[in-house]
Write a protein that binds this DNA or RNA. Structure first.
Length: 402
DNA sequence: TCTGGGGTCCTAGGACCC
DNA sequence: TCTGGGGTCCTAGGACCC
């Protein structure tokens, strides 16, 4: 698109690392750089990232490891190193903040930047984008792509189109002509289901969606979703950022889930897994100083049907035994309703999080709960000092999973 | 060896209150 | 007494994203 980009109206950048997990893992394995490489995809797992040589075989992130290996048997499989990803991500975000404080970290490998104030120092948004790409490559030896536009969603679309290792500027006057020929599925927030729904009434392109009356769209997708999609189709979504760092963003819920290596219907095994997951979630909550009131479980059966059950407690908690007790109670109710079936995955999530300060529990039911809370803190302390998993609930000592 | 694990937001219906 | 509406909370499920 025309780089008529000195304008203030075109100053949102979306920066997206190219095949982030794979690129980072390959920094230490240069000999593999031109070979097909996938990250993740072990037993019952999916591909987290595939480098570009692997993508040439049709391998995509999200597909099962089995399918990936079928497409590309010679692919080298590496295990993800999340600590490394987080370190690299933080460094990259710091690089962004040297350009502007208006950085909205979207995920480990993506961020939005508002560079409207950086013009004088670093030039046009296009020049800023090129500077950032060069800087990231110098510092991290990984490439990224940048979309430049007047709104968040158009910038995001543009960066995808720029991949790999490129820049695309979509100026406001070119937005409609750029957007309208695209498949609706390209829009941010339009997934497989919504796309199929739109297709059923003959809406194929973004332009098709833009031209149908708003009430029709809202009737199909709901009030808020319909209005949002309409905005996306005209490229008129938000253009202001809320500066946010992924590491200090207060979360609204915290959860943990795990797929069993083999499906099981054994309540003892399920209960133990619920305890393990409850401990994992609540220790993260305590580390973050958060408590929550709603406990939710997720059960996925062998046939992949997935059910959730939740219950809101009278008082917020971060106590492992209370979360586990509620999780197991929800599970028993579910078994009573749905019967005993083989289970593939269980999950525990605590919602409605709020800071613990100011939400001190009353002691009406008192002493017992207080005792558990103190035990949890002792576990946390030992974990920090001697390593995670050194101290754990007695029920988890024997019968650890194979 | 079919389909992970971490999240967010929206919808819809019912309860309950004003 | 009847009728209606709005707002909020809770629960279950669905869709989507990285």
């Amino acid at each position: 698109m025309t780089p008529q980009d000195g304008s203030e109206a075109c100053s949102i950048l979306h920066v997206d690392m190219d095949a982030f997990y794979a690129s980072v893992m390959l920094r230490d394995r240069p000999e593999l750089r031109d070979e097909p490489v996938v990250i993740g995809g072990g037993h019952r797992g999916v591909i987290l990232a595939a480098n570009y040589p692997a993508r040439r075989f049709g391998v995509r992130s999200g597909m099962s490891g089995r399918d990936a290996l079928r497409l590309c048997p010679q692919a080298v499989r590496l295990s993800p190193d999340y600590r490394l990803f987080e370190r690299v991500s933080s460094s990259v975000m710091e690089t962004f903040r040297r350009v502007t404080p208006l950085v909205e970290a979207y995920s480990l490998d993506e961020a939005f930047l508002d560079v409207s104030g950086a013009g004088r120092r670093l030039g046009t948004p296009l020049q800023v984008a090129e500077w950032l790409r060069a800087q990231v490559f110098d510092e991290q030896q990984i490439t990224c792509s940048v979309g430049v536009a007047g709104t968040v969603s158009v910038a995001k679309l543009a960066s995808r189109r720029a991949k790999p290792d490129g820049v695309l500027v979509v100026t406001p006057e070119r937005v409609v002509e750029y957007l309208h020929p695209l498949d609706v599925g390209e829009l941010f927030g339009v997934g497989e289901k919504t796309r199929a729904k739109l297709l059923r009434i003959g809406l194929v392109t973004v332009g098709d969606v833009a031209r149908i009356p708003l009430p029709t769209l809202q009737q199909m997708l709901g009030r808020a979703s319909g209005a949002h999609l309409h905005q996306l189709a005209w490229g008129t979504d938000r253009s202001s950022l809320t500066p946010r760092r992924s590491d200090d963003d207060p979360e609204r819920s915290m959860g943990a889930e795990e797929t069993f290596s083999r499906d099981t219907a054994d309540p003892a095994v399920i209960s133990r897994e619920l305890l393990r997951l409850s401990a994992r979630v609540t220790s993260r909550m305590r580390a973050a100083g958060m408590t929550g009131r709603t406990v939710a479980i997720r059960i996925r059966y062998s046939d992949f049907t997935t059910l959730t059950r939740s219950h809101t407690l009278a008082d917020p908690t971060d106590v492992t035994s209370l979360v586990h007790a509620e999780a197991f109670r929800l599970f028993e109710v579910l078994v009573a309703q749905a019967g005993q079936r083989r289970i593939r995955l269980v999950g525990v999530r605590v919602e409605g999080l709020r800071p613990r300060a100011g939400s001190e529990r009353q002691l009406a039911l008192g002493e017992r709960e207080r005792g558990w809370a103190e035990a949890d803190r002792a576990v946390d302390l030992a974990g920090r000092r001697f390593g995670r998993g050194v101290v754990k609930p007695a029920a988890l000592l024997s019968g650890d999973r194979p």
